[in-house]
């Protein structure tokens, strides 16, 4: 085995162990048997809308990771496509429809206009 192959194997084991360890952390701490402390229960409940809202903001920001904000759309494609997604979802309540239409609007905007 080459040096690089050995490196890839060790690296794969390390990244997997750390990532899965992080994912398992709350379950190892509070998962077995007894009820978890009320404060953890509370954090778990408020965390999901908060984390998902955070991921939305993060996705918006990620678009401009490698490009200049003003010259590559200045947030207009994201804003327009997000409004389409949410508006359609409030109106029709069909997740797939909202996501496909929002993504289509976004693709058209970034490919043809911006």
């Amino acid at each position: 085995m080459s040096e690089q192959t050995i490196y890839i194997i060790i690296m794969a084991v390390a990244t997997c162990a750390v990532t899965v360890g992080l994912r398992a952390f709350p379950f190892l701490l509070f998962g077995s048997g007894k009820k978890c402390p009320p404060v953890i229960d509370y954090i778990g409940k408020v965390l999901s809308p908060a984390a998902i809202a955070m991921l939305v903001i993060y996705c918006w920001c990620s678009t401009y990771r490698n490009s200049d904000f003003l010259s590559s759309g200045a947030g207009i494609p994201e804003l327009a496509a997000s409004l389409v997604t949410v508006g359609l979802h409030l109106y029709k309540r069909n997740p797939l429809l909202s996501i496909i239409c929002g993504t289509a609007v976004y693709m058209i905007l970034v490919q043809k206009i911006f």
Binding site: S48, P49, A50, V56, L90, P95, Y106
Partner: peptide, 26 residues
Amino acid sequence: MTALFLVVLTDQCRERKNRTPALIGA
């Protein structure tokens, strides 16, 4: 992916109790 998060967030915010946590997260 962004749209998926938006849709899940929209559904969660139909319940009033989730709105303040969502705002705090944002």
